[in-house]
């Protein structure tokens, strides 16, 4: 391994991570600087729920596609979402594993599974890019940041396919590109929509707290019975 690769896979990553952490801390402090409103009214008459249950339900919402009509109706889209986010999480994990625990990447099955996941993410990223351009509503609401963030993650996933084998002996370019992109990703994330995961706990916490307190969460519904054919 060259010194340059060692630097980009280790020192550069740590610098980028530190930068990201600092910006995130500033961002959270900024958000907490706004006063949170509270619920002064009496709780709901519904006895089977509470603020606490509402918060838990709200946080877990994302893992319960049946809980929202949007995820029920667009289940394939939900699956794409899951795969794409799993790939991003795996990608971030890989950026730590390669320099600090390379042994974990030795079994070929791990490499192949990761490559399949990254390939799926690339396909999903391309489809989502197409959707943003072709769907009038999506095109209307998309900002340059939306396009760039999606493109960045898609290209990063593509690069990861070649970095996953972790074979600098066969050529350092894939790993070099991967780590440089990872560092850029870490630096760019706090300023982009990708940082939505930072806000997710807050938005979901407050929405769930109110909805639980008022008895809306957990959502109750009577599903439409399927037509019976005789």
């Amino acid at each position: 391994m060259s010194e340059t690769l060692r630097f980009v896979s280790d020192d550069l990553q740590l610098m980028a991570l530190s930068f990201m952490a600092i910006v995130y801390m500033i961002r959270i402090r900024w958000l907490l600087g706004f006063k949170a409103s509270r619920d002064r009214q009496a709780p709901s008459e519904r006895k089977d729920t509470s603020s606490f249950k509402g918060i838990v339900y709200s946080w877990a919402n994302i893992a319960m596609p049946w809980s929202m009509e949007s995820t029920r109706r667009m289940f394939p889209f939900y699956l794409q979402f899951m795969v794409f986010h799993l790939a991003v999480a795996a990608n971030i994990t890989m950026s730590f594993v390669i320099p600090y625990a390379p042994g974990l990447m030795k079994p070929m099955i791990v490499v192949r599974l990761l490559q399949i996941l990254f390939s799926a993410a690339v396909a999903i990223g391309c489809y989502r890019m197409y959707r943003r351009f072709s769907n009038p509503a999506m095109r209307l609401i998309s900002t340059p940041d939306d396009f760039f963030s999606l493109a960045l993650l898609t290209v990063w996933s593509f690069v990861s396919i070649f970095a996953a084998p972790n074979r600098p002996d066969l050529g350092e370019v894939p790993l070099m590109v991967y780590f440089i992109m990872t560092a850029f990703f870490l630096v760019y994330v706090p300023f982009s929509k990708i940082s939505h995961y930072l806000y997710y706990p807050f938005t979901r916490f407050y929405f769930g707290r109110t909805m639980g307190y008022r008895g809306v969460y957990p959502v109750k519904r009577a599903a439409q019975p399927k037509p019976t054919h005789t």
Binding site: F34, F81, N135, F202
Partner: peptide, 14 residues
């Protein structure tokens, strides 16, 4: 905080 969360949290997923 609730309003700001909703203002910064949208990812334009549609």
């Amino acid at each position: 905080r609730q309003l700001v969360g909703s203002l910064v949290g949208c990812v334009h997923c549609g």
